[in-house]
């Protein structure tokens, strides 16, 4: 087993294990910590794909900003262990797990068939220098996708104003009941 594949399998095991903790832990704080672990592992996966800049942005945006948002809201709520963390109902639970199994099977079949036909012999594209790759990415973002990029900025502004307006309804979080 080469070092590259060993690294991939360690990162994949960390990602899937943390994802399992996210959906199984009954204490939301544990869920958020496991989610941070999953984000960091995904950043490692990006790095193993030679996407260095995306890995850095993943660390800053997800493991930094989004996780801080989640943890702040959790601490604001002061939640204890949930008595009933999962939805009740045996029949509906069975249908939910069955539908997840169906979707998982469809995705697995799609991956299997596409890799058999298209990508089995395709080698990886030649790796370029990290600086060159980041420059290419910047060219794409600021030339080809410039309009989408600006639209994303406008969207973020609208979302920020909307979130503040939404959480100010009825006098803030600590309003008297």
């Amino acid at each position: 087993m080469t070092a590259d594949s060993l690294l991939f399998f360690i990162l994949a095991a960390m990602t899937v294990g943390s994802a399992l903790v996210v959906i199984l832990a009954s204490n939301p704080i544990f869920c958020s910590l496991a989610l941070a672990m999953a984000m960091i592992s995904v950043a490692g996966i990006f790095a193993s794909l030679n996407a260095w800049f995306v890995a850095g942005v993943q660390l800053i945006v997800y493991a930094g900003a989004v996780m801080v948002l989640f943890v702040m809201v959790l601490m604001l709520f002061d939640l204890k262990d949930e008595v009933r963390a999962f939805s009740r109902g045996l029949v509906s639970g069975f249908f939910k797990i069955a539908s997840v199994a169906v979707i998982g099977g469809v995705i697995a079949a799609a991956v299997w068939m596409s890799t058999e036909t298209i990508f089995s012999t395709a080698p990886a594209a030649p790796t370029v220098n990290a600086t060159v790759a980041t420059k290419q990415l910047a060219d794409l973002l600021f030339k080809k996708y410039l309009f989408s990029f600006e639209a994303m900025g406008a969207l973020l502004l609208i979302i920020a104003i909307g979130a503040v307006a939404l959480s100010r309804i009825e006098g803030g979080t600590h309003a008297d009941k």
Partner: peptide, 10 residues
């Protein structure tokens, strides 16, 4: 997780 959990944050 989306289908089975009841906590909005999770």
């Amino acid at each position: 997780g989306v289908l089975l959990r009841r906590n909005v944050i999770v």
